[in-house]
Amino acid sequence: MNVVVRETPARRNLPLPEGAMSYLEWGYDDPGKTPLHFAHANGFNALTYQRILGALGDEFHVRAWDARGHGATTLPADPANHRNWYVYRDDLIAMAEDFVKATGQKIILAGHSMGGTASIMAAAARPDLVRGLVLADPVMIPSGARYIMMLSQRLGIGGNPLADGAERRRAVFADRKTIVDRYAGRGAFRTWPREFVEDYVEGGTRIREDGQVELLCAPAWEAANFRAQGHNITQAVRNLHVPFALLYAEHGSTCRARYPMLLKRRDPKAQVTQIRGATHFLPMEFPKLVIDEVRAFRDRLEREGR
């Protein structure tokens, strides 16, 4: 990996009626920079992606949230009442409204996995706030598969391996190094550079009063996100009226078969690219490619006068 962190981000809070949305900010020194918001994947946090976002801070005014139930954000997250990802759409709209107010410009929404899905839904609902989208393997499940998944869960038949695995995740460790050593090179982190694992652990844990370290995204909430598939991503795509760029994985992509072409119909000029050799964790595997895609998308918007 050849991406160097150039700038330490500022930690900010956006007060909301239910609590505070925490986010990191890079490149806020120049009001003329292009505003970009990045939304992370389920179970992760903003700092996980600092090798990408810090590198963009020279040219972009970057914000990256800790989504509800993740990182330093204090908004309520009740697994028992979590049915869909519309709450992330609405939270992201609140973030976008504040970002637009602060900069006086529409913003680019970027996101990985669940963060990409939330970005699509927010852009479809509020195109007045959004200049365009850069998506890294968003979760896009066809309606039929979603209904079968939800019915199976309701009837207690079958299972959800991702949710079941998340629920079994250990939440408390002796220290952060123990977590990094346990995760690096294994399971979902198998293809991650160690630096990304270290950033994930730093941004996604807290030190308790007893000196032990605890995950900030509770395993039950991470599991609930995997099961909460009541949102309609197909309808959001049909309502999408902003330009976008899409990167999706060759192996184990969550951007299911028909969606790249369904998206392409919404923006015939879009760059839609399957990344050879990539898994669902393509931002960690190909960080420079994601950086280059964000820059190329900004350049496209400027050429088109958007």
Rank of each mutant, 00 (worst) to 15 (best):
D175R: 03
I179K: 01
I179T: 01
R182L: 12
G185I: 06
R186A: 01
F189D: 09
R190Q: 13
R190W: 03
R190E: 14
R194K: 13
F196T: 13
V197I: 12
Y200W: 13
G203A: 08
G204W: 01
T205Y: 03
T205P: 08
R206N: 01
R206P: 02
R206W: 01
R208V: 07
E209R: 14
Q212H: 13
Q212K: 15
V213D: 01
L215F: 02
L216I: 01
L216M: 12
C217H: 12
A218I: 11
P219S: 07
P219C: 10
P219F: 06
A220W: 03
W221R: 12
E222N: 04
A223W: 04
A223I: 03
A224N: 03
N225E: 03
N225C: 14
F226A: 05
R227I: 00
G230A: 12
H231S: 13
H231D: 15
N232M: 03
I233S: 07
T234R: 00
Q235Y: 04
Q235W: 04
Q235M: 04
R238E: 14
N239G: 13
V242A: 05
F244M: 09
L246R: 00
L246H: 00
L247K: 03
A249L: 10
E250G: 11
H251P: 02
G252I: 00
S253E: 11
S253A: 13
T254L: 15
T254V: 14
C255S: 15
C255G: 07
C255R: 05
C255Y: 06
R256P: 00
R256L: 14
R256Y: 11
A257M: 00
A257D: 14
R258A: 11
P260F: 09
P260L: 08
M261Q: 13
M261L: 06
L263M: 12
K264G: 03
R265I: 06
D267K: 00
P268A: 06
K269A: 13
Q271D: 11
Q271A: 10
V272F: 02
Q274C: 14
G277V: 07
F281W: 05
M284S: 11
M284G: 10
E285D: 09
F286N: 14
